[in-house]
């Protein structure tokens, strides 16, 4: 019985690659970083239009009510200018974290 198990073990070796069930170690940490970045990306990009769609449907009252920044409605500035900065910032943070992660794993090896 134990012999069969030993024979089977090489083929039962864990070769699983799954974004939703990452392997422990490097991959799990990498996926955590990816999830955080993706969440920050998705909420900023799609959260604003969804929020706008729910709250504001009438043009005149919308433009009268919303806060203004740099002379345009805040959501307008957010989409037209801030989000690109936000994307750059996300890529920057992602790179810092991945640099840190890969250097710590390389040292361990």
């Amino acid at each position: 019985m134990s012999q069969t198990n030993e024979q089977n073990s090489p083929s039962r070796e864990d070769l699983r690659v799954n974004f939703f069930r990452p392997r422990p170690g490097f991959m799990r940490k990498e996926v955590t970083i990816i999830w955080i970045t993706l969440a920050a990306w998705a909420i900023a990009t799609f959260g604003m239009p969804i929020h706008l769609a729910i709250i504001h449907s009438d043009p005149a009252s919308t433009l009268a009510e919303v806060p203004y920044i740099f002379g345009v409605p805040a959501y307008f500035w957010f989409s037209g200018q801030f989000l690109i900065l936000w994307f750059i910032f996300l890529c920057f943070c992602f790179n810092i974290l991945i640099d840190w992660l890969s250097s710590s794993y390389r040292r361990r090896r």
Partner: peptide, 16 residues
């Protein structure tokens, strides 16, 4: 802005 954000935010997806 959908074009502008699509064509910049896509790089975040690609990189990440």
């Amino acid at each position: 802005f959908a074009y502008i954000l699509g064509w910049t935010g896509g790089y975040v997806l690609l990189l990440v």
